[in-house]
Amino acid sequence: MSRGHAPQFSASDLLQEISFEDIDGFSADDLAAAFAAFRRSATIIAADGQEQRSAVPPPPSLIAIAQRALQGVDDPAQFFRRWFQPRRIKAKGFVTAYYEVEVEARLSPEPGFVTPVLSRPLDLVKLNEAPLSLPSGEKLTSARRQADGALVPYPDRRAIEEEGAAPSAHPLAYVRDPVELFLIQVQGSARLRLPDGGVMALTYAGRNGWPYTSVGRLLIERGLVNRADMTLDLMKETLRRLGAGPGEAGRRIMQENRSYVFFEIDRSEARAIGPIGGQGAPLTPFRSLAVDRSIWCYGLPFWVAARIPWQSEAEIDFRRLMIAQDTGSAIIGPARGDLFFGAGEAAGRRAGDIRHAAEMIVLLPNEVGDGP
């Protein structure tokens, strides 16, 4: 069997060669569900499709495997065993979880719904291949293109919110308050419930390029929330208690995260399946994984093993084959993962409790033609 393609990062000594028999629970997993998620990635990989947020490019072996997956597979377990080689990531693993927000919204402002969800500005340019370096040492992944073609830093969250510094962005809808908007931006997508019973899907359309700062971490560091008590609901409650209006303390803390996310209305067939991840594929609950896109390519399968409260408040085993289909500004490191839990309030409650150690095993692609 081939040793598989090494990931495109220098710390290859972090990977330990193992066999599928070494993966506790692999044979008991629903690998047909994992394969269904992989096929959604395969569609994009095989077609060299456009990614929402660019990542390490897939190696030729993964492209060939994606093409084979689209031809149909009788035995998903045999498919993964034949075309991939497991490697245990020896770095300390850590997982969080995220979900798709569902919130009430209006298409025009009215009392109680005055916070706009903004579209992508016309002058926003992605700089993933050549970030804009600042004298401070910060690197911006997006910038503003001026009329003369020059690139300058895009205004940060505070300027956009208080000064209207993204004038070419237009409101797509209005939500209750800046805390609700902030949550949507952190999650990267949302389902907006309208008064007539309709639902409008938002998909990530870009960000201003400033580095992400964890507001939850700021609340803990300043003694406003105990680390052991931190949940998504408590974070929202605390920010609202501190005040989310202009100049109020909660608003100022949120503005310390200078990153600002823009959206688009998405009525595509794929979006009807689920929110669109960084790869451009619809996400599958408990099968889609966000990874560090500077290290891993989309479409790689990862085995994640942890004891987490994913079904109730009790911590139980989570042992599943996940597919790398998303990324996030806070997802940094070879063994850092973010588990997609689905949509709605219940998923949000469970996702907000996940901050746990985990074992992560990556399945690297074999050369097509290799295998047992």
Results as ranks from 00 to 15, higher is better:
S2M: 10
R3I: 13
H5S: 15
A6R: 15
A6N: 12
P7L: 14
Q8Y: 11
Q8N: 14
Q8H: 14
S10W: 13
L14M: 14
L15Y: 08
E17S: 15
S19E: 13
E21W: 08
D22Q: 11
D24K: 15
S27A: 15
D30H: 10
A36H: 08
A36R: 11
F38Y: 15
R39L: 12
S54V: 15
P57S: 03
P58A: 12
P60H: 04
S61H: 01
L70P: 04
Q71R: 15
V73N: 00
V73M: 02
D75V: 13
P76K: 07
A77N: 06
Q78H: 13
R81H: 07
Q85L: 12
Q85G: 06
R88G: 07
I89M: 11
I89G: 05
K90D: 09
A91T: 08
E100C: 13
E102R: 14
V103C: 14
A105F: 11
S108Y: 11
G112A: 10
F113K: 05
V114E: 09
L118D: 02
R120F: 02
P121E: 03
D123W: 04
K126F: 09
E129A: 15
L134G: 04
L134Y: 01
P135C: 05
P135T: 01
S136G: 05
K139G: 01
S142Q: 04
R144I: 04
L151Y: 02
L151V: 06
V152N: 01
Y154R: 00
Y154S: 01
R158S: 10
A159K: 05
E161P: 06
E163C: 12
G164E: 02
G164F: 08
A169P: 08
H170A: 14
V175G: 06
V175N: 05
V175Y: 07
R176F: 10
R176C: 12
R176Q: 14
V179K: 03
V179N: 02
F182M: 01
L183N: 06
Q185C: 05
L192R: 01
R193D: 01
R193T: 03
L194C: 02
G198H: 02
G206H: 00
N208D: 00
G209F: 00
W210P: 00
V215E: 00
R217W: 00
E221N: 06
E221C: 04
V225L: 02
R227L: 10
A228N: 10
T231G: 03
D233H: 12
L234C: 07
K236Y: 07
L242T: 10
G245I: 12
E248I: 11
R252D: 09
S259P: 11
S259N: 13
V261M: 09
V261D: 04
V261E: 04
F263E: 04
E264H: 13
A272K: 14
P275N: 08
G277R: 06
Q279F: 07
P282L: 09
P282E: 04
L289N: 05
R293L: 04
S294I: 02
C297V: 07
Y298L: 04
L300R: 05
L300H: 04
P301V: 08
F302A: 04
F302S: 03
A305M: 03
I308A: 02
I308L: 09
Q311V: 11
S312P: 03
E313D: 13
I316L: 09
F318N: 00
D326R: 11
G328K: 01
I332M: 09
R336V: 06
G342K: 02
G342P: 06
G342D: 03
A343E: 08
R349N: 09
A351W: 03
G352P: 09
D353A: 15
I354F: 09
V368Q: 08
